[in-house]
Structures are given as C-alpha cells and as structure tokens.
C-alpha cells in the first residue's frame, strides 16, 4: 500500500483522463480519480448507466485507460460479479497466472444504486464477490434532468418533486443506503467525501486490503441539480460533512468508526442548504418548519452514526451534541 503523499500521488497517471466531458465542476470525476489514485493494483470497472458512464464513453472515444464495461443501468454490481467470477475461475484453472492481482470496482450514481440497482447490489454483497461498489451520490437522477431518487434529501426541488403551490419539494426523507449495505454484513462499508481526499483514499486503501464485498458511499455535488456554482463542489462537500448531513465513517469487520468529528467546525444545516437553489423555497417564512424538520433528520442520523461509533469504541466516546452551538 502506497503512502498517501500528495506529491507522489500527483505523479500517478490519470486513469480517467482529462477531456472526459463531465460538466465543469462535477463532483463525480473527482471522486473517481481519488478512488483510482488510491489503488496500486490493476483495476477493472463496471459502470452503471448514468452521467459518469454516458459522458466518459461517447464512441469512438473513451476517457478510461483501464478495462471498463457498461452494460445497463440497474446491474453494475451483477456485471462486475460476472467479471470477477471469470477472473476467479480462470485463475483457479491456471488459465491466467496465479499471481495476477486485479481489483474490481463498480461505479454507480444514486439512481443506479439506491433505486434501480439496489437488488443487484444486494445480491452481489450477499454472494461475497471480491469487489468494491462505489456510489457517487449527487442526490437525484441528474443525467436525465434532475428527477428525485430515494437519495434526494427531504424538501429538495427536483423535476419530479417540484416546489409548487401545494407541495414543497420532496416530501420524503432519504433512504440510508450505507446502513442497508452494512446490514448485508459486508466486511467494509464507508462514507466519504472528496473534500477530505486523505480520508477518502485511506478508506479505499483499507477496503482494498480486505477480501470480499466492499461498499463506499461518496457525496458528489452536482451544480446543475443542486443549482449552485461550478466552483463550489469541494466547499459544498466540506459543508455537507460539517453540517453532519454526510457523516464520514466506516465499519470495518463490524467496528464502526467516525473518521471525522466536526466539533468546533459544526454548522447548522441551513448553511449547507442556503447556497443551493434546490432548497430556495425552504427559506420562505411559511416553510420554516421544513428547515427545522431537515435539521431534526440530520441530527437523528448523526446520533445514529455516533451511536455505532460509541458502541465500537468504549474508550473514545463522541458526544453527538458536541459543536452544536446554535
């Protein structure tokens, strides 16, 4: 495992090349590059249909400098299962050298993972393939034009949960996919954010050192869908973590660890919501209850994650109220 030094990392070849045609300021390619830069072994990727897939492989061009397969929307986990199974079979039969080491990754957005790909993901986690699924969560079906997914936050204005005269954006709260993955007993499950590249890449490296199915959920701001600026993906992912909307944690072989506790950097959720056009209507006086409800949902989730940490670390207790100064 290579040491995570920025100078060394900058010398690694980009396996997702520039000119990949993702939008300016998109979080997803940053996530992909950080994940790939953290892995020393050769990688094969299965990609679900979505922005990342569609923008990076417009025939006859491909931005991928590694073996890569896209087959459909809902089946990245099943597709990589097949690739990995073939690798195991050929290796066992001596048809490829026994010392061949390959890491298998699947990438999918939240639509392709939380929603349509959930069954395939569940199956692959349960079967125990030696692979890692990375969900880049931008909180909606951005590729088709910002439709709500089960990852879309409460209250968000999307094209299928528009803020109107009667309904004020998405009426439901988010699905907690990370905990669903965890419930499969996968040996490594984590949440990460591209603003904290060291944390993200350390998690990838840890995951790669563990055999079996791994799952990482990574926040990936989308300025088109979030109605923000093209230069604030990193600022908004940092704020997403500091507001505890997106807790950074991992569960490795049953041991849950909060890898970053905002403490004095902790901010109210309104500071993350405010710069995002999709939450504009939450700041109307009559929707004040929605801001309160959103904060309650965030607090409830943070308490739950901290609770897992505290149960795993009797000597390093975290106070879930710490830093909450408002």
């Amino acid at each position: 495992m290579s040491v995570l030094k920025l100078k060394e990392l900058s010398k690694k070849p980009d396996l997702l090349t520039g000119g990949h045609r993702m939008c300016a300021g998109c979080g997803a390619p940053i996530v992909v590059r950080q994940v790939l830069a953290a892995i020393d072994e050769p990688v094969i990727i299965a990609n679900a249909t979505g922005c990342l897939e569609v923008a990076t492989t417009i025939y006859p061009y491909s931005a991928w400098k590694l073996p890569w397969i896209h087959s459909a929307f809902e089946n990245a986990a099943a597709t990589i299962s097949g690739v990995e199974a073939m690798y195991q079979s050929l290796k066992r039969q001596g048809k490829i050298p026994a010392d061949t080491k390959i890491k298998f990754l699947a990438f999918g957005g939240d639509g392709g993972t939380y929603d349509i790909g959930l069954q395939a993901l569940s199956g692959a986690l349960e079967r125990g393939h030696d692979f890692m699924y990375v969900c880049y969560d931008n909180g909606a079906y951005m590729n088709t034009g910002i439709q709500r997914s089960s990852a879309t936050p409460f209250g968000a204005d999307t094209t299928t949960s528009p803020a109107g005269k009667v309904l004020q954006g998405k009426t439901q709260k988010r699905k907690d996919l990370t905990k669903i993955a965890l419930a499969h007993g996968a040996p490594y499950v984590a949440q990460a954010s591209p603003h904290n590249w060291k944390d993200l890449m350390a998690k990838v490296q840890k995951a790669m050192s563990i055999e079996g199915p791994k799952f990482m959920n990574i926040i990936a701001p989308c300025n088109r869908g979030w109605r923000t600026q093209t230069n604030d993906a990193i600022a908004l992912s940092r704020l997403g973590v500091n507001t505890c909307f997106w807790p950074l944690y991992e569960v490795a072989d049953g041991v849950a660890t909060v890898t970053y506790n905002p403490k004095k950097n902790r901010r109210p959720i309104s500071e993350w919501l405010k710069p995002q056009g999709r939450f504009k209507h939450l700041f109307k006086p009559e929707n004040d209850w929605m801001l309160k409800k959103f904060q309650d949902l965030v607090d409830e989730n943070w308490r739950s994650v901290v609770g897992m940490h505290n149960a795993s670390h009797p000597g390093e207790q975290i106070d879930p109220e710490e830093g909450k100064t408002w």
């Binding site: 690739v83 199974a85 690798y87 050929l90 048809k95």
Partner: peptide
C-alpha cells in the same frame, strides 16, 4: 448481466 460481465472478461 453476470454472464455478460463474465463473457466480456474472456471465458
């Protein structure tokens, strides 16, 4: 889907 991944892998 798994058959497609496996066949594309080369077997």
């Amino acid at each position: 889907s798994a058959c497609i991944g496996a066949a594309a892998a080369g077997g």
